[in-house]
Design a protein around this nucleic acid. Structure first.
Lengths: 141, 141
DNA sequence: AAACATTTGCAACTTAGTTGCAGATTTGTT
DNA sequence: AACAAATCTGCAACTAAGTTGCAAATGTTT
């Protein structure tokens, strides 16, 4: 109704992925298409009309979109914070971290030093940058 | 007892930061010194002797170490997952993300493309890499 | 060792995310 | 257009990470 093009786009994507075109999937896909940036469950819920979909439905819908590759998790973290000693780090940049997808351990790659990114667009002020790698550690590979 | 050098090192760091040398802070600092990589509260608890410190104590201890700059949070995420459409991303690399520390919004920096990291050490197999920037967005700057 | 400043543990709470199950949608078929 | 089969949805209840208030314990200074 409001955005026939977005609607059709969402439905086409779902068809192509061989998924049911349910209200939930179409609405959530439209929200993500319109936003064009990573959103949390909470943000998606508010943007699709508060109270329209259950939290569980949104998570499960996203999971189904994830499985067919239409969507991905922007940050690959576990839900727990991780702390480390602050030496070797400048205020703005820490060394890269490597997280093993098999054992879950994280290692510091202190040998690598990276150039600091330049401001990507006029108006963005960069304070810190972070590089993370994911894969298999020597023990698990 | 086991590691007098680590113990002294921890105490020296605390003194220099003008913090009380409490059992908790010394033990937790030693755990982090010994690990040399980012650990979650859960991991710290297990390594400092299960049941030795309350979860709350560990979080508050880390917060005090954080405030004086002895420790930092290795990953700067919020606790919520963020999802985005998977287009524009190769299997191994997504575009960098910029998160504003003021309004909390995350933006995609799709214009920037980065070279894929090479394996840092023999034995590490890199599957994905992720770059995140933190600072102020144009609206908040 | 007393007095003061911090820290600690407990209990209770919040928020993100998960699971099981019955009832509602969606799809393909007639 | 209507039915059956497959799939999705909401509810309620749960787990795990992290937070807050407060009284008791510990650390520091004199």
């Amino acid at each position: 109704m409001a955005k026939p093009n977005l609607d059709m786009q969402a439905r086409t994507m779902l068809k192509a992925a061989a998924l049911y075109c349910t209200q939930g999937r179409v609405a959530i896909l439209k929200v993500l298409l319109k936003a064009g940036r990573p959103l949390s469950q909470d943000q998606i819920a508010r943007r699709s009309g508060p109270g329209r979909f259950d939290k569980v439905t949104i998570y499960r819908t996203l999971e189904s979109l994830l499985k067919v590759g239409l969507v991905h998790k922007a940050f690959m973290d576990k839900r727990a914070w991780h702390f480390e000693l602050a030496h070797n780090c400048t205020e703005s940049q820490c060394h890269p971290h490597f997280t093993c997808t098999s054992c879950g351990d994280t290692h510091c790659l202190t040998e690598i030093s990276l150039p600091m990114a330049k401001s990507p667009h006029k108006g963005f002020v960069i304070h810190r940058q972070q590089v993370r790698l994911e894969g298999l550690c020597p023990a698990c590979a």
